[in-house]
């Protein structure tokens, strides 16, 4: 905790203002695009490119500052705290969606089905609706039949409908992702004992497993849309299924990109030393975090789904 008195405070930086501009153009473009305005896609594309470029320069700057020896042990601790609390914020983001799933399954749907205080709701608004999970028949279908606006999926992803564990894709996805958490740990161990080639091997393998997972997820989504009639608008089951797995998939994508960059930094530039590897370590913490989220998904969305 004691200050060393040599904390590096950069004098001035153009990065933040351009990062703000890039972020603004990205979301302003996205909003215009979603609202159907013609300028949307252009603004969004320009904003994203600017934002990505600024982040690239920003990370390059931080890396070269570290190489130049500007970063004291105390400054490195600031980065560690920063990454740790960022991951905590991500945990809370997922908590909102897991919480929504819990609320819908345990409270909202039973009440719509007439349990507890919901008797009148069921009787007067959604007569004939029965609470089941996975929700195949929406309240809208129960009341309006063929004329329903919101229809449920034809089939679902629950383990209860899977034939056997060994042919069940989510199980193999779990195997792939859990294995990748182990391989990234092996990479870390190798780096700690200064074994460069072993580090590159295990890290490369982790990146490969990340891409494999994403491929399998994409395959599952295509299958869900084409063969199972399970889409984003298939009532609350499709909503929670795609939003939870989708945000997880987006985070795996980000984590894979992070690890890929770390891999390329090691292979092409020889970055990271056994006692100085925060970039890799923070990416690996992020990877363990998306892995833990997957375990939650596997249990609550797939097995108990």
């Amino acid at each position: 905790m004691a200050s060393e008195g040599t904390y590096y405070v950069p004098e001035q930086s153009k990065l933040p203002i351009f990062a703000s501009l890039g972020l603004f153009l990205t979301v302003f473009g996205a909003a215009n695009w979603i609202n159907g305005n013609d300028t949307g896609p252009v603004l969004f594309t320009c904003g994203s490119i600017l934002f990505a470029y600024v982040l690239w320069v920003w990370f390059s700057t931080v890396i070269s500052e570290n190489m130049a020896g500007l970063n004291s042990a105390q400054l490195k601790r600031s980065y560690v705290w920063g990454m740790g609390w960022f991951i905590f914020s991500e945990v809370m983001f997922f908590a909102a969606f897991f919480g929504a799933l819990w609320y819908v399954r345990n409270l909202a749907l039973p009440w719509l089905g007439g349990e507890g205080a919901g008797a009148a709701t069921n009787e007067f608004l959604w007569k004939g609706f029965e609470h089941t999970w996975p929700l195949m028949v929406t309240p809208d279908m129960a009341v309006n039949g063929e004329a329903a606006r919101v229809t449920g999926p034809e089939q679902n992803m629950s383990f209860s409908t899977a034939g056997s564990l060994w042919t069940w894709l989510p199980f193999w996805n779990t195997v792939v992702l859990l294995t990748s958490s182990v391989t990234v740990h092996f990479a870390h161990t190798a780096l700690k004992s200064a074994k460069r080639s072993a580090f590159n091997f295990w890290l490369g393998l982790t990146v490969g497993l990340g891409f494999l997972f994403l491929g399998l997820q994409a395959w599952e989504y295509v299958h869900a849309y084409n063969a199972l009639g399970l889409t984003l608008d298939s009532g609350i089951y499709g909503t929670t299924f795609f939003m939870l797995t989708g945000f997880h998939g987006a985070h795996v994508t980000l984590g894979t990109i992070m690890l890929l960059i770390m891999f390329l930094r090691s292979v092409m530039k020889g970055h990271f030393k056994h006692d100085d590897c925060f970039g890799f370590e923070s990416a690996s913490w992020y990877w363990h975090f998306v892995d833990v989220v997957w375990v939650g998904l596997f249990i609550f969305v797939y097995i108990l789904g």
Partner: peptide
Amino acid sequence: PVLAGVVTMMLMDIHFGTSFFDAAGGGD
């Protein structure tokens, strides 16, 4: 992040057909 989550659910309900806050689809 929870606020970010809830406005994201709004965005999805408004533009992408999800049912978080729509009882017709089983939401609330």
